[in-house]
Amino acid sequence: MKLLFVADPLDHFKTYKDTTFSMMREAARRGHELLACEPRHISWKSGGKVAAACRQIELTGDAHDWYVVRGEPKLALADVDAVLMRKDPPFDSEYFYATHLLEQAEREGARVFNRPASLRDHPEKLAVMEFARFCSPTLVTREAGEVRDFHAEHRDVILKPLDGMGGMGIFRVRDDGLNLGSIIETLNHHGATTLMVQRFVPEITQGDKRILVIGGKPVPFSLARIPQGTEVRGNLAAGGKGVAQPLSARDREIAEALGPTLAARGLLLVGLDVIGDYLTEINVTSPTCFQEITQQAGFDVPKMFVDALEAALA
Rank of each mutant, 00 (worst) to 15 (best):
A7K: 01
A7E: 07
K17D: 03
K17M: 06
T20S: 03
F21Y: 04
M24W: 05
R25Y: 04
E26I: 07
E33M: 09
P39S: 03
W44K: 08
G48L: 09
V50S: 01
A51C: 13
E58Q: 14
E58V: 14
E58T: 13
L59C: 09
D62A: 15
A63M: 12
A63K: 11
H64I: 14
D65Y: 12
D65V: 10
V68K: 13
G71N: 10
L75T: 05
L77F: 06
M85P: 00
R86D: 03
F91N: 02
Y97Q: 08
G109Y: 14
R111M: 12
R115D: 07
P116S: 09
L119C: 02
P123R: 01
E130K: 12
E130G: 12
C135F: 10
S136L: 14
T138F: 14
L139G: 03
R142N: 09
G145H: 04
E153N: 08
R155Q: 12
I158F: 08
L162N: 06
G164T: 02
G166H: 05
G169R: 02
R172I: 11
R172V: 10
V173S: 05
L180I: 13
G181A: 14
G181V: 11
I183T: 12
H189A: 15
H190A: 13
H190R: 14
L195Y: 04
V197Q: 02
R199E: 15
F200S: 10
E203R: 07
I204Q: 02
T205D: 13
G207N: 05
G207I: 01
K209L: 02
L212I: 09
L212W: 07
S222T: 10
S222E: 08
A224W: 01
R225H: 09
Q228N: 13
E231G: 04
L236G: 02
G240A: 12
V243F: 07
P246F: 13
E253A: 15
P260N: 12
T261V: 15
G266Y: 02
L267W: 01
L268F: 08
L268G: 01
L272V: 12
D273K: 05
G276K: 10
Y278R: 15
T280D: 13
N283A: 06
N283L: 06
C289P: 02
F290I: 00
F290D: 00
G298E: 14
P302Q: 03
K303W: 08
V306W: 03
E310F: 04
